[in-house]
Amino acid sequence: MNERIKPKNSVMALYLVPIYLVYLCVFILPVILAIYFSFFNFRTVSSKTFVGLFNYKKLFTDPLLLSSLKNNLYLVLVCMIGQIGIAFVFANMLYSRLINPKVSNFFRTVIYFPVTLSAVIIGYVWTMIYDYHFGLLNQLLISFGFPDAVKAWLTDERSIMTVVSIPMIWQYVGFHLVIIMAAMTSIDKEVYEMAEIDGASGFRKAVSITFPLIKNTLSVCVLLCVSANMKAFDHILAMTNGGPGYSSSVLALYAYKISFAENNLGYGNTVSVAIMVVMVIIIAGAKGIMSLFKSKE
């Protein structure tokens, strides 16, 4: 293909190889190292002792690992419903004929803004919102007449994961909203017009026209959401640092803490390997489930 303009192999190598090598060092090498390190116990790199599968055995009996995984899965679930659900509803509302396109576009722009902020900023803005004494949330609750609902949001271990997930949902609704709206513009307008003529309500339109037609886009959203939340790290670090106790710890943060705060590098790397395995399983699973739905169509 395109043999006439294809440069010599040496030229191609010059173009492609250097950055490829760098890429290998940055992404592939750490993975190999993580697997290698996971068979050792060590506090400093030059004093490693080989322990075989010891760390992997520990993995399966570690309650904190399990609770971190649970937190990750909880985040995935809540964010999937929250982010994509809210985005889908809003997309349908903003796409409606009844709303002025300029206003709708303005709303979209505003709702998208948090996406451009860093996780650390989101984390800190929300610690200010959640603050017990001077937080926005508690102030609003008081001024709207719900003084009983006031509480120290980031302190309650039972609800901490929900509290922590709200900023993450809040940040990414705009992201999914824009994707879904883009997909909706590709739907033939006549389909909607016909439905309206038939007297279909907005709800009916969303469920029986929009949803099946943008299924593929939605599955992309789901995949993005799953992988983003399995990687959750910065938000949690900024808001609670995994606390109180280990109640809001997630896998990536747990691996980081084991390695650096507890200085148990071997086991930390084992947790890293576990994260990658879980990640591949979940993404493959999600893809499998979605392809199942597709084939049913």
Partner: peptide, 20 residues
Amino acid sequence: NNNVNTRMRANLQSLLAGTM
């Protein structure tokens, strides 16, 4: 020692919060 230290600190938060 560092092992017990990290655990004690984190667990103490949970102990005080009553979840442990």
